[in-house]
Write a protein that binds this DNA or RNA. Structure first.
Lengths: 215, 215
DNA sequence: AGATTTAGTTAGAGGCTATCACGAAACCTA
DNA sequence: TAGGTTTCGTGATAGCCTCTAACTAAATCT
């Protein structure tokens, strides 16, 4: 084999340990949030002493960034797998909701409260725009008949973020509202702001989705 | 004076020190987020040694809870001050946006990513329902003509959260969408998810608001 | 087999939360 | 105004944490 598709044993071991560290990190985040993530505790869980982890991640921040990257990647893949030809908003929406409920902290890592200083590395924002592209595809596939709103004409003049995507202004607007409205419902639901109230969040979600599809 | 409206000097001093501590805490939160809040650092800033702060707040968590309480209180007051007789959604919405932009971290303390274990004390949830009541008032004042949707009939059966408020189902639905849609736009804007894109978030916000008022 | 890279160790600096025991100041009361 | 009591702030300390540095031992490469 000319290609070392399977890497050297050391590299195999290394990636496997990195994976286990991330695994434990996800568990910690799920139970106590990202701020409670402790490299020391992970190391002890894995039977090694604190500083050993620094062979695998340069810092706590780098580990968290890696988790954020994985979260983005996971959502982008889910979206791409759901996306097909034609307008499949509903499928995307439900895929999003399933993905969010599957691991709320993972959702919050992507769309939750940011740390003021933090700036995502370029490859992460690239994944974000990949997600947006999938969404724009779905929106472009939907015909739009109603006349352009003022905001849509504003968007037509500020469409750099669509990154060359040929979506018409109405589709840009549709993608944005798809994003903000579903995020509005989802983030409040995941944050537990509906728990006291006894209605079914899933119905609110689909009601918003229906409204999105109707107009 | 039978009433000690002005307290004893000790109490005056005490509340003043508590206020200064919270002041510094807000500054720290604004620049580095709640997770970076350090009692030690605040103490040093105020010229006293670490443990002294524990005379004023039993723990870091208690201080943060107090900040959350103040944030809720501030929003409830803003809402109540904005609310008048009749349907003034637009005023409420813009008051909300101003309040949010005024101090994004304060907004996130209320509506942002929650710490998994954390449960807000009862008086805080009471303020939350006070906010909801103000919103329901505005929604009730608006006439609704369209036929009830399935979700609205569902809400009619699960309206405990309205806490005896006489709002009709359509108003319940309207209050929820008001909340989720505006939060959707605001939270993404404050979290910086629109920064790369060059459009004006204010226009998206008012576009969503207009849509809310139109239907 | 020897040289080199890498994984893991302990020690330690410096930060944090939080508790405790102690001195000192302020306050209340007789 | 003098004495007892409450309250404030202190330093010391325990126990976490992140992260660096020097060192050992094992695996890998030549």
């Amino acid at each position: 084999m000319a290609e070392t598709g399977t890497k050297t044993p050391r590299e195999r071991y290394r990636t496997q340990v990195r994976a286990e560290i991330k695994e434990r990190a996800w568990e910690q985040i799920a139970t106590a949030g990202p701020s409670a993530l402790s490299l020391n505790a992970i190391a002890k869980q894995m039977g090694m002493s604190g500083p050993a982890l620094y062979r695998y991640f340069a810092s706590r921040d780098e580990l968290i960034t890696e988790l954020i990257r994985d979260a983005y990647r996971s959502l982008a893949d889910t979206f791409r797998a759901t996306s097909g030809p034609g307008p499949n908003h509903a499928a995307l929406a439900h895929a999003l909701r399933r993905w969010a409920l599957d691991d709320p902290q993972r959702y919050f890592l992507v769309y939750g409260t940011p740390v003021p200083g933090y700036h995502a590395p370029d490859d992460v924002t690239a994944i974000a725009s990949e997600i947006m592209t999938t969404l724009l595809d779905a929106c472009t596939a939907l015909p739009s008949d109603s006349p352009a709103t003022p905001f849509e004409t504003h968007l037509e003049g500020h469409r750099q973020w669509a990154d060359g995507h040929p979506a018409p202004p109405a589709a840009l607007r549709r993608a944005l509202t798809f994003w903000t409205r579903l995020h509005g419902v989802l983030s409040l639901e995941l944050a537990g702001h509906f728990t006291g109230m006894r209605f079914d969040p899933a119905l609110l979600f689909t009601a918003e989705l229906d409204d999105l599809l109707a107009h």
